[in-house]
């Protein structure tokens, strides 16, 4: 029984972290909150018996993406402390609605019994391990991944390159 309560706790943690990322005033803390969400997600995925994916998620999302965001923030001129203070006040005017909507939606979903008429697919007998699925069945996706990575490299090369002096400043 405690498994379910654990799930509830982890999911609640993840949702709270997500809301925190959205509501948080300063950008830096928002990125940290995002990393927290990612960590919570990893925990949930462990619960859902998807360990490899969880580790991958943790290392890439929590790690790499946070780094990307940090560097972008570093490259851009962050607001001074005072500016962030009065900025957060004005922000609040726009964001107070989110928790209200979420509370309403949560209670509505809890209250109404959603018809679960569909039946889930029967579980496979041969418990294939992760490796051969990825390589035998999903080769096409692998090729896709290679393509995406190549495109990503070009993207980074084109976009992040400092503008060299002779380039026309249009």
């Amino acid at each position: 029984m405690n498994g379910l309560t654990l799930d509830i706790f982890l999911l609640a943690m993840m949702t709270a972290a997500a809301v925190w990322t959205v509501m948080r005033g300063s950008l830096l803390r928002a990125v940290i909150a995002l990393a927290l969400t990612s960590i919570a997600l990893t925990a949930v995925m462990f619960r859902l018996k998807a360990p490899i994916a969880a580790v991958f998620e943790l290392s890439v999302c929590a790690g790499l993406i946070t780094v990307v965001f940090m560097s972008t923030i570093a490259l851009t001129k962050p607001l001074t402390h005072k500016e962030t203070l009065d900025y957060t006040k004005t922000r609040m005017k726009r964001f107070w609605l989110l928790p209200v909507i979420m509370a309403l939606l949560g209670s509505a979903l809890l209250y109404f019994t959603i018809p679960m008429d569909f039946n889930l697919a029967a579980p496979l007998e041969t418990a294939k391990n992760f490796r051969n699925i990825l390589w035998e069945e999903r080769q096409f996706d692998l090729i896709g991944q290679i393509l995406v990575i190549l495109a990503g490299i070009f993207g980074v090369v084109v976009l992040f390159k400092e503008r060299s002096k002779d380039e026309p400043q249009d």
Binding site: I52, A53, I65, F69, N129, R138, G144, I149, G152, V156
Partner: peptide, 27 residues
């Protein structure tokens, strides 16, 4: 559905692609 291996493969691909998208968006 008991197909955790399959979903993990999908998630791996998804994460790779999302990283690239976010990187380009950040650029």
């Amino acid at each position: 559905t008991g197909r955790t291996a399959m979903s993990q493969a999908l998630i791996i691909t998804l994460i790779v692609i999302e990283v690239v998208v976010i990187a380009v968006a950040a650029g």
